[in-house]
């Protein structure tokens, strides 16, 4: 029973990790809490769901969903990043909230406000290993999440884009002087975080077979918790934090009650930020904190 719950938590953690990482990238590099990420997550789930219902294959459906979320993220970049250089850091945050409200309500208008079943071709296939029941789509989702996080790590640490990102995290003014194309590099980062969030949404649908217009908010709060727990701006921190948050969530549901989940998860987050704001792995992996 305990082992089964832990496995469930682990698998859920993979999706939280994608969202946590999407948040973590924009915070680590631009010091900006991007509230459009829950909307992109939701779009990833809804768009792939709509494509599947029209009878397209899963590959094409997810690809279209990713194209939509990546494109939306680039549009959002136009409306948020431009002001980040100014001192008032609330402006991009407000714009990103505007996009959240916009996308969520557009989805309500076109898809309704009820949760929709996700017509995944894999359904709820599962296998039994020892005494554990493992859902195959969840396992696959977890593997994909891990692969994406590793890819993201490689991109940030090994590529030219990643070097640009890290130098912008240090100082965008100086990066510009040193010849980094700040505009394009930041676009690259938005694209990555949009794809991560969108993929998270699609994998959520495949794993839990249900999507709705407000699926992003809950997961986003958990993702933010995971990010803080692991350390803001820290890639592995996002993964570790997500595993712990998901584990705590699943254990609380089965041993306390499902109503107590929020008390425990957010209580933990509050406590952490008060006593250990740098998180478990520290928040300096991508960069030092800025105002």
């Amino acid at each position: 029973m305990l082992a089964q719950q832990l496995v469930n938590g682990l698998l859920l953690g993979g999706i939280y990790a994608l969202v946590a990482l999407a948040f973590s990238l924009t915070i680590g590099i631009l010091n900006f809490l991007n509230f459009s990420i829950p909307a992109l997550f939701m779009l990833g789930g809804i768009v792939s769901c709509a494509m599947l219902s029209k009878g397209y294959g899963i590959g094409l459906s997810v690809a279209v969903a990713l194209a939509v979320t990546g494109g939306a993220s680039l549009i959002i970049e136009r409306f948020t990043f431009r002001w980040l250089k100014n001192s008032d850091s609330h402006i991009p945050l407000v714009s990103s909230l505007g996009f959240l409200i916009l996308f969520e309500n557009l989805v309500v208008i076109y898809f309704g406000s009820d949760a929709v079943g996700y017509p995944s071709p894999f359904g709820g296939a599962s296998i039994r290993v020892a005494k554990l029941l493992l859902s195959l789509p969840q396992l696959a989702s977890f593997a994909i999440s891990l692969a994406l996080i590793v890819t993201c790590y490689v991109v940030v640490t090994r590529t030219k884009l990643g070097r640009g990102l890290r130098s912008i995290a240090e100082s965008s003014v100086i990066s510009e002087m040193l010849g980094v194309d700040v505009g394009r590099t930041v676009s690259g980062m938005y694209l990555i975080s949009g794809l991560l969030a969108g993929m998270g949404g699609a994998l959520f649908g495949i794993s839990y077979l249900q999507v709705s217009w407000d699926m992003g908010s809950e997961v986003a709060l958990k993702g933010i918790s995971a990010m803080v727990l692991g350390g803001m701006g820290n890639i592995w921190g996002a993964l570790l934090g997500a595993m712990i948050i998901a584990g705590v969530e699943v254990l609380t549901i089965s041993y306390v009650s499902s109503e107590a989940v929020n008390v425990v998860v957010y209580g933990l987050l509050l406590l952490l930020i008060l006593v250990m704001p740098n998180g478990l792995l520290g928040d300096r992996a991508i960069l030092v904190e800025r105002m």
């Binding site: 100086i174 030092v288 800025r290 105002m291």
Partner: peptide, 14 residues
Amino acid sequence: PALSNEAAFQRNDN
């Protein structure tokens, strides 16, 4: 040196 004084001052804000 890489950074000017003022830039460092700004950076220390937090």
